[in-house]
């Protein structure tokens, strides 16, 4: 065990390698996320962004390297144990429980630390945590409707709400605005800004416009490695980034 909780960064990834059937998805990634950061993770298709958060959340096992969360090595731990340490994530295709109501979805997320026997009791009313999450995502009017009736954007918000209700120390959002309309993107951006105020958040994103509007710190991945790291302006100005990723967008924007 190197480093205590206090002096370690919240997330420290060192020399991370992932190999799928001979394909090197990640080839030695180093990444540090400090407490309170809002970090964007970008890169062209196949750069390894999702693979990276898959490793952090236990879905994929690394071939080499370490993932330290607040000083604890989480590489290879089982998924639900990692969640219990305080890492929450969303998926590209949002998965909410369609048969359950919006409140039940949030309540389920909020109650994950309850011991099993207490789950045998019926839910009475709405807990403060759930009410607060419902308020944050703005789905109060749909609280008792089954989540199956929600639109794509609302589902993503519900998922984010479920994360917030778990009070995680680190949130990993995988392409939260993919497939969203312009209005929905704006609302998601506001939601993100609000959440980032008191959470550490890592966002994997594809959408450059969204990035320009809401990102401050950006890490660019390319072919399984970290290409550049810095603030939005610096990253955008970097010729290597332009070459692999932003080149076209920049010309179009000019």
């Amino acid at each position: 065990m190197s480093g205590t909780e206090k002096d370690a960064a919240l997330l420290e990834i060192r020399g991370l390698e992932v190999v799928f059937d001979g394909f090197r998805a990640l080839g030695g990634v180093d990444l540090t996320v400090e407490r309170g950061e809002l970090r964007f993770l970008i890169g062209p298709n196949g750069a390894g962004k999702t693979t990276l958060i898959d490793v952090v959340t236990g879905l994929t096992r690394p071939a080499a390297g370490s993932v330290r969360f607040a000083g604890t090595d989480v590489a290879g731990m089982r998924e639900h144990r990692i969640v219990r340490l305080g890492i929450g994530r969303t998926f590209q295709t949002s998965v909410v429980f369609e048969e359950l109501s919006v409140v039940e979805n949030l309540d389920l997320a909020a109650g994950f630390r309850r011991p099993l026997p207490t789950l045998l009791r019926q839910r009475r009313g709405v807990s403060d945590t759930v009410a607060a999450a419902l308020d944050t995502i703005g789905l109060g009017a749909l609280a008792d409707r089954p989540a199956g009736v929600l639109s794509h954007g609302q589902r993503q918000w519900l998922e984010i709400g479920m994360l917030v209700a778990q009070r995680p120390r680190l949130l990993l959002l995988d392409e939260p605005v993919a497939g969203m309309s312009r209005d929905e993107r704006d609302r998601t951006g506001e939601l993100l800004t609000e959440i980032a105020r008191d959470h550490t958040v890592v966002v994997v994103e594809h959408d450059m416009e969204f990035l320009r509007r809401y990102a401050s710190q950006v890490t660019v991945l390319h072919e399984g490695r970290v290409l550049v790291e810095g603030d939005v302006a610096a990253v955008q100005a970097d010729p290597r980034v332009q070459e692999v990723y932003l080149g076209r967008t920049k010309k179009e924007a000019a």
Binding site: V95, D107, L108, R113
Partner: peptide, 21 residues
């Protein structure tokens, strides 16, 4: 009960439930 709701959630999205802890 909450357990029952959790059970339905497991039925409809076992992997997602895992990521709820």
């Amino acid at each position: 009960s909450r357990f029952g709701r959790l059970l339905v959630a497991v039925r409809d999205g076992e992997d997602r439930v895992r990521f709820l802890g």
